[in-house]
Design a protein around this nucleic acid. Structure first.
Lengths: 342, 342
DNA sequence: TTGTACGCGTTATCAT
DNA sequence: ATGATAACGCGTACAA
């Protein structure tokens, strides 16, 4: 079933059918109806490949994501895909993993498929070593690149992010204000966004004249699902003599590990240990007590990112960087109303 | 940069370039080298749209998924996408939500994109009312349809699933054998797979001559992320006078709610309440105590599903149904070694 | 308002 | 082993 079949059955030329299909105004209502009827009756839909070839676009966007099974990234992918589809775009998903070479390969794959744009979900796509971002610069010469939670100065690269620095700073300040001065900062990513968070914590310490101690900045290198591992990690820290009455975690999973650690060691939360996580994920409410966490408004971020993306594809003027604020959601793992003295 | 440019620069016809590109044997090594060099040097890659038009395929599979941010479905999507890509296929993701009309719309969208096959992730795509599955039957006339965790008898529809009936039955039997006879069965989905699990529980009761009591089959209709809601739900049940020393949950989230309920009500787990979840997700280890859960070997399921899919696309003979077993992973929310008497 | 004819970049079928 | 050429199905400039 092609446009020729329709044109023949409707007794018009393919040009007219095409015009009807694409909503051109230059077609007599009567003719339009006639054509529409045939199309309806045959259940005809234009061949997407042929269309793509002619228009050099299949209205498809590539989504690059290290691991779409990650609690946070999965949500991002979900929001992005939905927004794209509602905007008339399809999504090709590529789960790249965290290895640079694999990311490059996946990106090349998408470009070969002639996607209209590429969305990189997660700060892990921007490498600390600037030279390692060349693959993004190169790609940006072909299609617009949208970055979620990352910052990269480059033509045709658009960034939508949360101000993780400020959000983490505020979380730290809230704890310090509460009288907790020995705060363990726990992180598991050194990505762009990861470093912003760390710096937010450090800046809060500096603002409040707390000593900066490397011992209190602990990097956890295990898997992203290994809550038990985090728990053991913290127990080991304590055994080594490190004292802490607060845990600030760059990820809810790490915070959940801290809660578990407290329970297994008979510490009360927040009495003996205050805990704040990051991402405001499912983990915050499945824990007992529930975990205070920074919400970085992922849905808003994604919606804005897609809006920017589609705007660019429509050749509209769009901001190169869009920054939202985070928000501390207080739950039972902290008690900022009472000034507990340690 | 087209195949014509390459042919001109290499001093051959486009036919030869195409042959080189597609690895035809009928080309002189020397010519091949000459062409390859030009291709290399120009960084040429064939236009995917033109290729698609000619071959009527862009090696793309559509993935339909109600909610790719769901813990379980997200993992499934992740495994499927990776397996497909390693097999040379791209994935177009469509998050449909749980409304039938939206599923139909999304499926139609994929078919219009001329995907080579459609994978439906999650049992929720098969409706209880047989007539509501007509949209799947219709689609199967155009492309092969792969179902994960669902069962549908139809030509060109292939099912890969876990034997949820047996897995849940075994979980129930393990509890009963442990002396727990008042088991609350908690579920939140009446999909195909959901009913299999429920029946597994019921059959175990029958096998062990336990009375079947509707009161003990509780449907929780809240959101899939509302652990707190589950917790309240259970507290209400208890207030209404329902006694139970075991909870069998069709989803880890429900089990996590049960753990929370126990803790808030001063019940010891597994002393006063034994709990078993389903899916063996992250939630099982982030809880304290950790939750016993049925693992349905999702990664294996997905890998097999994609294998079948690619096999079909290669016109190989493939099984229409593939069924794996589940496995009860015992953790601290149950203690099947000691026979505790209630 | 409508129709003709060409171009989009491949693959594949013929010849040679 | 290689080249010329016809599909593939659509959008669109141009002609009518």
């Amino acid at each position: 079933m092609t446009i020729y079949d329709i044109s023949r059955q409707a007794g018009v030329s393919i040009a007219t059918v095409s015009r009807v299909l694409n909503g051109s105004t230059n077609v007599k209502p009567k003719t339009r109806k006639k054509v529409m009827d045939v199309i309806e009756q045959c259940g005809y839909t234009p061949n997407a490949f042929a269309r793509g070839l002619g228009l050099d676009s299949m209205n498809t966007v590539g989504i690059l994501c290290a691991d779409s099974s990650d609690l946070y990234l999965a949500k991002a992918v979900y929001f992005i895909e939905r927004n794209l589809r509602f905007g008339g775009y399809h999504s090709i998903l590529c789960c790249t993993g965290y290895i640079l070479e694999d990311k490059k390969t996946a990106l090349a794959l998408l470009l070969n498929q002639r996607v209209d744009a590429v969305i990189m979900v997660g700060s892990n796509f921007v490498e600390a070593d600037a030279g390692d971002n060349q693959y993004i610069f190169d790609a940006a010469k072909q299609v617009p690149i949208m970055l979620l939670n990352a910052d990269l100065d480059c033509n045709n690269v658009y960034c939508t992010m949360c101000d993780d620095f400020k959000a983490m700073q505020e979380a730290a300040l809230a704890m310090i204000k509460n009288g907790i001065t020995d705060i363990l900062y726990l992180y598991n990513s050194t990505s762009y966004s990861g470093m912003k968070k760390l710096n937010g914590y450090l800046s809060a310490c500096i603002m409040k004249d707390l000593p900066i101690n490397k011992q209190y900045q602990q990097f956890f290198s295990g898997s992203r699902e290994d809550i038990d591992g985090v728990c053991r990690f913290l127990s080991d820290l304590r055994k080594k003599g490190l004292e802490f009455h607060g845990v600030l975690a760059a990820e809810d999973m790490l915070a959940a590990g801290a809660i578990k650690y407290a329970k297994l060691n008979g510490l009360s939360v927040p009495g003996d240990l205050s805990v704040i996580g990051y991402n405001n994920s499912l983990l915050t409410t499945c824990s007992e007590p529930e975990i205070s966490s920074v919400d970085n408004h992922l849905e808003t971020l994604c919606s804005q990112l897609v809006k920017t993306c589609i705007g660019i594809l429509n050749h509209e003027e769009m901001p190169q960087k869009t920054i939202f604020s985070g928000e501390l959601i207080e739950r039972a793992s902290t008690d900022f109303n009472i000034n507990s003295i340690k």
